[in-house]
Amino acid sequence: MAESRSVLSSSLGKKAVMAVSGLILVGFVLAHMAGNLKMYLGREAFNHYAAGLRELGQPFFPHGGLLWVARGVLLAAVVAHIGSAWLLTRQAQRARATRYQRHAYAQADYAVRTMRWGGVILLLFVVYHLLHLTLGVVHPSFTHPETLPGGTEAYHAYENLVAGFAGHPLVALAYMAANLALGFHLYHGIWSAGRSLGLGTASSDALWRRAALLVAFVVTAGNLSFPIAVLCGVVK
């Protein structure tokens, strides 16, 4: 048996990279959804939460320090996730260079069949979402954070959120569509990550399936509720 090459040279290694980076991003979307639930506590609580994200890790980290570390980790995870997806897709396309004249699926569900294009949709949505509610570039009336006399910073996340959706049903619809895509991506991705890391074996496979369904449902339901709440005037 020959001397082995690098773990990343194989599709199994690349799938492990995809699984680990994906699970990091799962942790993020869970925390992101949970944090946004604070909009139901009102303007003060939500804006305080936005400001509080900059204070994470204090006094060990400087102001905004841990947030930037988290952003760095997330960006690295996104790059690793997309990079491995790209390489694995290329390998798969080379392996099935000649396609069937008549193709059918035996049992693959909707979630796994839409992983690649669903991922592209999510990437486009993330770019739009950052331009919309983080940077305010494509926002109709974005209020940027300002430094008050005395050095404290004021964030207007709540006002931006309400102004971003209220009276803009198409924007809200785009958010809802993207979060449905996220739900399907999570449902297959979390379960698949367990298998790719060799953890979803015979005894624990059903557990991974249930966990994937639960996380996908909780994240999607929470995220769908935000634009709906604004449109219905619950959050205003």
Partner: peptide
């Protein structure tokens, strides 16, 4: 992998 087979997306086909 050298034989040109593809990657596993857990389609379970």
């Amino acid at each position: 992998e050298q034989e040109g087979f593809g990657s596993c997306s857990n389609f379970r086909e």
